Amino acid sequence: MTFFIRAMVFLLSSISLSCFAASSILVWPIYQVIESDENSSALWLENKGDAPVGLQIRIMSWKQIDFQDRYADQSNVIATPPFMTLEPGKRNMIRLIRVNPPPANTE
């Protein structure tokens, strides 16, 4: 019986935690590109929910190895501002800035 009670408490606590973590953030454009002749690009975030959302913006490198996604820290692109609170119904622009110039003759 105690196993059942512990399992139910764990299940209910995990459900309530996921509800607190849920938010309605719209991000566009999805496919972000910094053109070779530009140093930055605009990324828009919009809060479609009814509560303020605190955000931390982190830019990660991505590649696939053996059909598995691999994410890692990187230092080539930064986001500004890196932290924000987005109020309900509001949108804000994040600037993605290239730190180093692109290598010559590369795509």
Rank of each mutant, 00 (worst) to 15 (best):
V27F: 02
L43V: 05
P52M: 11
T2S: 07
M8R: 07
Y71F: 13
I25Q: 10
A7T: 15
N47E: 08
M8P: 00
M60E: 14
A21V: 00
I15H: 11
M93P: 01
P88Y: 05
F83D: 07
I25E: 10
R91C: 02
A79R: 02
A22S: 13
D37I: 04
Y71R: 02
Y71L: 04
S14I: 06
L96V: 11
C19L: 11
V53Y: 06
G49V: 09
N100I: 06
L43A: 01
I25L: 14
S41N: 01
P82E: 14
A21R: 02
R98I: 06
R6Q: 10
E35M: 13
D66T: 03
L43N: 00
I34H: 08
V53H: 02
I97N: 04
S14N: 12
S61Q: 11
P88D: 03
L17Q: 09
V77D: 09
F83E: 06
L43Q: 00
R70D: 09
T85L: 02
E107F: 15
M93V: 11
L17A: 12
K48R: 15
P101F: 00
M8K: 03
F3P: 10
G54F: 09
G49R: 03
S23R: 04
D37R: 10
L11V: 15
S40A: 14
C19N: 10
E38D: 15
L43H: 04
S23E: 04
P102N: 07
N47H: 07
D69R: 15
G89C: 03
L26W: 05
Q56K: 14
T106R: 06
V99L: 10
M84G: 06
Q68T: 15
I15A: 15
A42H: 08
V99A: 07
E107Q: 14
W44P: 00
R98G: 10
V33F: 01
N105M: 10
E87S: 01
N47A: 09
Q74Y: 02
K48A: 12
W62F: 15
Q74A: 03
L11T: 15
V99T: 11
L12Q: 08
S16R: 04
E87R: 02
I25H: 10
M60Y: 15
L26N: 07
A21G: 03
A21D: 01
A104K: 10
V27L: 06
G54M: 11
T2R: 07
A42E: 11
D73K: 10
L43M: 05
S61N: 13
L12A: 05
L86E: 04
V27G: 05
R91M: 07
E46T: 13
M1I: 03
D69W: 11
C19G: 09
C19I: 09
I65H: 01
E35C: 12
Q56A: 13
A79S: 08
N105Y: 07
Y31Q: 08
R58P: 00
D73S: 14
L96D: 10
R70V: 08
P103Q: 03
S18A: 03
I59S: 11
E38H: 15
P102K: 05
A79M: 05
V99N: 10
I34Q: 06
K48H: 12
S24K: 15
G49F: 02
M84F: 07
E87Q: 02
